[in-house]
Amino acid sequence: MTPFVVFDAVSKRFDRAIAADTVTLAVGRGEVLALLGPSGSGKTTLLRLLAGFEQPDAGRMIIDGADVGGLSPARRRCGMVFQHYALFPHLDVGENVAFGLTGHGKREPGNVNRKVAEVLALVDLPGFERRKVQELSGGQQQRVALARALAPEPRVLLLDEPLSNLDPALRERTRRELRQLIKRVGITTLFVTHEQEEAFDLGDRVAVLATGRLDQVGTPDDLYERPASLFVATFVGRANVFRGAAAQAFGGADGQIVVVRPEALRFSEIGIPGVVKERRYTGAAALYLVDGDRGERFEVLAAPGAARVGDRVFVEATRVLTFAEERQ
């Protein structure tokens, strides 16, 4: 993989909050990278740094082999889709999409119209040119924003929480369509999300951020199976976290924290004793909340008929992840 977009030890702080802490990250040509993290982790800041809306305190950013540090946002050729889309309310759909194509000495009017029609067709809104943006549904607005960003043929596509404004019923379908579209265009894409499912579904790779620090970059499988930090282990997927004696009961060494996924725990004849407090039925399986005798509390994913509330059970782990005690 030849890196197409590179963050090289990029740092940025706002007053006292650290938004980017010497982040180094490479994205391949045509790759889709998800930036995943809780709010305040600095993921949007990375997008804005690359787009040129913020200036880094230190480090370099490279697109296609060239340092973009000195370029104004207007000259970086990054297409951006904003969280609330930022469609211009005084322009219609066609004028919005044409915005980046017109202006001093850019294209012939005929070419502009052809290009607008082309990208609107691409996002499945053919013939929408003269519609008012206020009259569109949320999903249509999102696609207009995407068409507008793609029309000037940017080098990188940046998406800031592209699905957060849609209602949940629409989100999954839109996610699929978005993925297909990005792959069809073949554009290098960075997108920000705080939802793991979205990151896993859309991203070729996922970068997990916590308070400005890049904890891990990898495929979804990597992150889930081989988390590089306790933060990644608990932020990605469900996890039972054990410290001290409980950790040792699961085979952790002294001073280690043990993380066990709910599906890596099972009811057995031996293991840690406890009582089932709650059972949540999820269809194919059930999630059991167990109170251990020594005060620990954990979730077990097992067959729907494996236990009942109030049952006395023993729990054993099939696979554990261990981490060193966090430095505080």
Binding site: H90, G100, R148
Partner: peptide
């Protein structure tokens, strides 16, 4: 004014004056 409107214009290649003329002034009309 929504800051992202102005940033959107810039990301689409509009300089400071062009953004003022094509986005800011129409929006505060």
């Amino acid at each position: 004014l929504d800051a992202s409107m102005l940033e959107a214009a810039q990301a689409l290649g509009a300089g400071r004056w062009e953004t003022l003329r094509r986005v800011t002034l129409p929006l505060i009309r």
